[in-house]
Design a protein around this nucleic acid. Structure first.
Length: 332
DNA sequence: CTCGGAAAGC
DNA sequence: GCTTTCCGAG
């Protein structure tokens, strides 16, 4: 059970070439596990997370990368490199707080969406394209609602007062993060077997357990994201999307539009996205989803065995889930 | 703390 | 290409 990103969002490899785990994947992993809530956790807006214990996160990262001298200073530098990549953002004013950009994450992780759509003839393609015609109010390419509807996430009740629907200071930012996760969501997402047939074959090389969400909403999402005619060869071109600053070329920006960020100067404005996101508390009771067999693949974050025997005097204690409760904020 | 340039490593 | 390391500036 994750609180935010659905399983598939934490994809295996992001770029061809570098197979090593990337920092943001790692962060996502940590965020995914409740054991680390004392160290890092979702907080605030969609995709926003706070590093409660920078030293610990750095240590864990260091373990993962076999970099005993890792520290928050260095880790944060790496994080800062994500700003330009649009993967991450800094939440200014809040210490140790950053925000993920879901659209980027999905795009980076699922370039094959396209293939699936194309291969199957995309029977579900409903939207001709945001550019072809005016996006009718009833057929938006991709709105927060759509996403939220597509990827429902069970379990949200966070006792400690959780995610406010909006923050006073950044209320305008609401639009920029259409995170499907956290959505109270359509409770009925079990998995339409009928859809499995045609698409099942599309992902033969995915060893990781595929979540049910994909089978259903998946094909639906694909066409709106990037219609086949936009990307004849999706695999190659999806690496860097228009988001990065495409000067030319028709950009498939439905997703981006939905995520209208305060960063991009280029925004198709063709789509007016309704800023309403159903949040915990706002959307409603949803359904705790009956599925409880969410045995996720285990991530041995504490696995240091792969590192070289050399330990530069830094022994470590891989055991992260420390029952620390006293550490509130690093006072400074 | 946070931001990025620069250089080096993988 | 993605960090890691070092570091001066705000």
């Amino acid at each position: 059970m994750w609180f935010a990103f659905p399983d598939w969002a934490y994809k295996p490899e992001s770029s061809p070439g570098s197979r090593q785990i990337q920092l943001w994947h790692f962060i996502l992993e940590l965020l995914q596990k409740e054991e680390y809530q004392g160290v890092i956790a979702w907080q605030g807006d969609y995709g926003e997370f706070v590093i409660k214990d920078p030293d610990e996160v750095a240590r864990l990262w260091g373990i993962r990368k076999c970099k005993p001298h890792m520290n928050y200073d260095k880790l944060s530098r790496a994080l800062r490199y994500y700003y330009n990549k649009r993967i991450l953002h800094k939440t200014k004013g809040k210490r140790f707080t950053y925000k993920f950009n879901f659209s980027k994450v999905v795009l980076v992780n699922y370039p094959l969406l396209d293939v699936a759509a194309a291969a199957t003839g995309s029977p579900l393609l409903l939207t001709p394209g945001p550019f072809a015609g005016a996006p009718g109010p009833d057929a938006p390419p991709l709105t927060p609602e759509t996403l939220q509807n597509l990827f429902s996430t069970p379990r949200l009740g966070e006792p400690g007062g959780r995610t406010p629907l909006f923050t006073p200071e950044t209320d305008k930012l609401r639009l920029d993060s259409p995170f499907p996760f956290l959505g109270p969501g359509a409770s009925g997402y079990s998995k339409p077997p009928s859809l499995l047939g045609p698409y099942g074959r599309a992902f033969p090389e995915y060893p990781w357990n595929f979540s049910p969400y994909l089978t259903g909403p998946f094909p639906k999402l694909a066409p709106s994201l990037y219609p086949p005619h936009f990307y004849p060869n999706p695999l190659g071109s999806l690496g860097h999307l228009p988001a990065a600053g495409a000067g030319g070329g028709p950009t498939a920006a439905p997703l981006l539009a939905a995520t209208g960020e305060g960063l991009g100067p280029e925004r198709p404005s063709g789509l007016a996205v309704a800023p309403r996101l159903a949040l915990p508390g706002a959307g409603g009771p949803e359904a705790t989803l009956a599925g409880k067999e969410d045995s996720d693949s285990e991530l041995e974050i504490t696995d240091v065995s792969g590192c070289s025997s050399d330990s530069e005097g830094d022994e470590g204690l891989p055991v992260p889930p420390k029952t620390k409760s006293g550490k509130g904020g690093a006072g400074s």
